[in-house]
Amino acid sequence: MKIGNLKFDERVNDIIGKIATREMRFPYLVMRRIEDRQSDSTPVYEIFETNRAGDEIQIGAVWERPKRSGDGVVLTGMIDDPSFREPLPIALFGDETNGFDVQWRRERDRDTQGGGFGNRASSGQRQGGFGGRSGGGFSGGSTAGADGGYTGNGRGLDDEVPF
């Protein structure tokens, strides 16, 4: 499901764009390539937004992941902030020259997908992760109980929700 787009803007010499869902709206995001990556596990891009005080804060990161077919890479990441109930998993399709479509999707159950995804081992556990978190993974369904309270659906609030 397309939730936004990002494109290089020559006026500001940055990749800028927006993401909007029913509950979230980011009208001006900046995505910057990390030039001095220390390893392959380092994100390729960082995503920033300006907060109410005018400070630019990092709210996301994007990594290159090998495609299942083994031919090329896909860009996947997270938009996250302590004020969110859970991170927003994203994937970017396109390139810096023509721009990126930002996509979101709810991950399906492991058995129906046949194999690992997003650097997860066959056990469903993610290796590494956004913000240093590990374990978990969103397998669909709601984490809200009938009263609207958090039930976790078998996961804690600090567990990663990988794309």
Rank of each mutant, 00 (worst) to 15 (best):
Ser83Gly: 01
Leu88Ile: 12
Glu86Ala: 14
Gly129Asn: 06
Asp71Phe: 10
Gly136Tyr: 09
Thr97Gly: 07
Gly116Tyr: 07
Gly136Ala: 11
Phe8Pro: 01
Ala53Cys: 09
Leu29Glu: 13
Gly140Lys: 06
Asp55His: 15
Asn119Tyr: 14
Ala144Trp: 13
Lys18Val: 03
Asp95Arg: 02
Ile59Phe: 02
Arg32Glu: 12
Phe8Tyr: 15
Gly149Lys: 13
Glu56Arg: 15
Met78Lys: 00
Asp81Gln: 02
Lys2Phe: 05
Ile3Ser: 10
Gly72Phe: 04
Asp14Pro: 03
Phe130Leu: 05
Gly116His: 04
Gly124Lys: 11
Glu49Gly: 09
Pro43Trp: 01
Gln125Gly: 07
Trp63Ala: 01
Ala121Arg: 13
Ile90Gly: 00
Gly94Asn: 07
Glu35Asn: 09
Phe26Cys: 07
Ala144Arg: 15
Gly136Met: 11
Glu86Ile: 08
Tyr28Val: 08
Arg85Cys: 05
Leu6Asp: 01
Ser39Thr: 14
Ala121Tyr: 10
Asn98Val: 00
Ala146Gly: 04
Val73His: 10
Ile57Gly: 06
Gln125Ser: 10
Ser134Phe: 11
Thr76Ile: 03
Arg106Ser: 10
Leu29Thr: 13
Asp36Glu: 15
Arg155Asp: 10
Phe117Asn: 06
Glu23Leu: 12
Val161Pro: 02
Arg110Leu: 14
Ile19Gly: 03
Asp95Thr: 03
Ser139Phe: 11
Gly136Lys: 11
Val62Phe: 00
Gly116Trp: 05
Leu75Asn: 02
Ser134Asp: 04
Glu64Asn: 12
Gly145His: 05
Arg32Phe: 02
Phe8Gln: 03
Ser123Lys: 06
Val102Gln: 05
Glu64Pro: 02
Gln127Pro: 06
Gly118Gln: 03
Arg37Gln: 14
Thr97Ile: 13
Gly131His: 08
Gln103Leu: 14
Ile19Leu: 14
Asp40His: 05
Gly156Thr: 09
Ile16Tyr: 05
Gly131Asp: 15
Gly128Val: 09
Arg120Tyr: 10
Asp101Gly: 15
Pro66Glu: 11
Gly77Ser: 00
Ile3Arg: 09
Ser123Tyr: 07
Ser123Gln: 08
Gly17Tyr: 08
Pro27Cys: 04
